[in-house]
Amino acid sequence: MSVRQGPQRRAPRKSAVVPDVPADSQRLDNQLCFAVYAAAHAFGRAYRALLGEHDLTYPQYLVLLVLWEEEGLSVKEIGTRLFLDSGTLTPLLKRLEASGRVRRARDRADERQVSIFLTDAGRALREPLACIPDQAGGMTGLDVEGRRALLDHLVTLRTGLHDGTDA
């Protein structure tokens, strides 16, 4: 004799807990990440205009900034400073070398290590490009104190995000 039971009750499905958040938190204009992303693109366009007459891209300019501080760094050291991997950095360095602005030299003790040095042409760009940070900064609509405060906040943001992804 079979006994018919009522409908089987399934265990409730475990789903991701979605906290109660105001609907405004889902608006694009309220996304910090989007504001940073869009600002980075705007900076890219501004720097493209400022660096165009020197036939430089923004990433190439960043490499020059690093080398003006210290020459002879390895590709890995430059990549660490710029948060770029060697797969991105190597072609960029080859283009800078082809344009006569840097030279690459293999380490005699370890052939796998490549150090980067400025050429005279790369060093000569430092003076004419010295105005670029102030020109770009002036395009932001922020005064010098505002730009410094924003820089401090962005460094804190980057550090926090970096540390958070390492956890």
Rank of each mutant, 00 (worst) to 15 (best):
V155S: 10
I132Q: 04
F43C: 15
P19T: 10
V144D: 15
H153T: 14
L82F: 14
L84M: 12
T80L: 12
R148P: 00
G6L: 05
D24Q: 13
P12L: 13
R95S: 05
V18K: 06
Y37K: 00
R9N: 08
D163A: 15
R45M: 13
D20H: 14
G141M: 00
L73H: 03
I78A: 00
D120G: 04
V66Q: 01
N30F: 12
W68V: 15
G146W: 07
Q135P: 11
L84P: 00
P133S: 06
K94V: 13
H41K: 09
E77Q: 11
V114L: 11
M1H: 04
G72S: 11
V63F: 03
E97N: 11
L67N: 00
T88Y: 06
D120E: 08
L151N: 13
G164D: 03
E97S: 12
D29V: 08
T140C: 15
P22H: 09
G79Y: 05
G164K: 08
L96I: 00
A98H: 07
R147S: 14
A149I: 15
E127F: 13
P19M: 08
R104T: 11
K94W: 02
P7I: 10
Y47V: 01
G146D: 09
C33H: 08
R48V: 09
R158Y: 01
L62I: 02
E127R: 11
Y37D: 08
A149V: 05
L89M: 15
H41M: 12
A109L: 09
D85R: 06
A35F: 14
R13Q: 05
V18S: 07
H153Q: 12
R147K: 14
A11H: 03
L92F: 00
F117T: 04
A11W: 06
E145Q: 10
G122S: 10
P128D: 05
A149T: 14
